[in-house]
Simulated assay, not measured.
Amino acid sequence: MAFRAAVVTFPGSNCDRDMAVALERASGEAPLRVWHGDAALPDRLDFIALPGGFSYGDYLRSGAMAANSPIMREVVRAADRGVPVLGVCNGFQVLTEAGMLPGALMRNESQNFICRTVDLRVENTASLFTAGYKAGGTIRIPVAHHDGNYFADTETLERIEGEGRVAFRYVANANGSQRDIAGVLNAAGNVLGMMPHPERAVDPAHGGTDGLRLFENAVKALAHA
């Protein structure tokens, strides 16, 4: 059965096409495109992606308005059924604002927009997103954000650390994130939020293909589910 993914677009999304290209490169199937105001998701989805950008101009708080878009009610329900959901950069912010992941993304410690390729250490290889990486290995993925400083209270940090839910850490902290956290999983392991952009590292012309493996991991895992 063909891999059936959807990419959600919000007003201000600017990485939705990149996400669609990455998913098609990994699966051979063009993903469906979903508008934030849609009341329902397409039937039988294998994967949902929330892309980067500046949804609603990042007014109020980054991701806060998008988290209340009509489609997000359906994304939450799909995730609760076990459908994998990937939120990248602004998509990570949306996932935290929607309560699908713990913590919050605050202004970068430097107060500056950061745009460069960074080294990430793979902390968890048990999820469908990360199973193809080497535990403790280093991958190179671009970042581009102004509000990527991951924050959570000490109790929450201890819980997600103890449950192995930190997916990626910055080798050199790029934005002030607590405990160098760059990506977090939900308790079930089917929702991943990360600030770095794997969809910008899927072609040799990008300078590396470490991001492609994340999408290939997901496609492979779901094909054998």
Rank of each mutant, 00 (worst) to 15 (best):
S69R: 00
M72Y: 03
A40R: 11
G57L: 03
A64S: 15
E74G: 10
S69D: 07
L41M: 10
S69Q: 00
A66R: 11
R73E: 14
D38F: 02
N68G: 08
G63Y: 00
Y59M: 02
L60H: 12
E74K: 13
E74Q: 12
S69M: 03
D58V: 06
A79Y: 11
I48E: 06
D38W: 05
G53C: 04
D43A: 15
R73Q: 15
R73L: 13
R77E: 13
L60F: 13
Y59H: 14
A79P: 12
F54C: 02
D58F: 06
P42F: 08
M65A: 15
A40G: 04
Y59D: 03
L45N: 14
P70C: 06
A78C: 07
S55L: 04
L60S: 10
G57K: 07
R44T: 10
G53Y: 09
A66W: 10
Y56V: 07
V75W: 04
G37W: 04
E74W: 04
S62W: 01
D46K: 08
Y56N: 03
E74N: 08
A49H: 06
S69I: 01
G37A: 01
A79H: 09
L41H: 09
P51A: 07
D46G: 05
L50P: 05
D38M: 04
V76Q: 03
A39D: 11
V76E: 04
A39R: 14
I71S: 03
L60C: 15
G63T: 12
S62L: 12
D46M: 11
S62T: 14
H36L: 05
V75F: 07
P42T: 10
V75C: 09
G63A: 11
R77G: 10
A78R: 09
S62F: 07
S55W: 07
M72P: 00
D80S: 11
Y56R: 06
A78P: 01
L50G: 02
L45H: 12
A39Q: 09
G57V: 07
S62G: 12
S69F: 00
R61L: 10
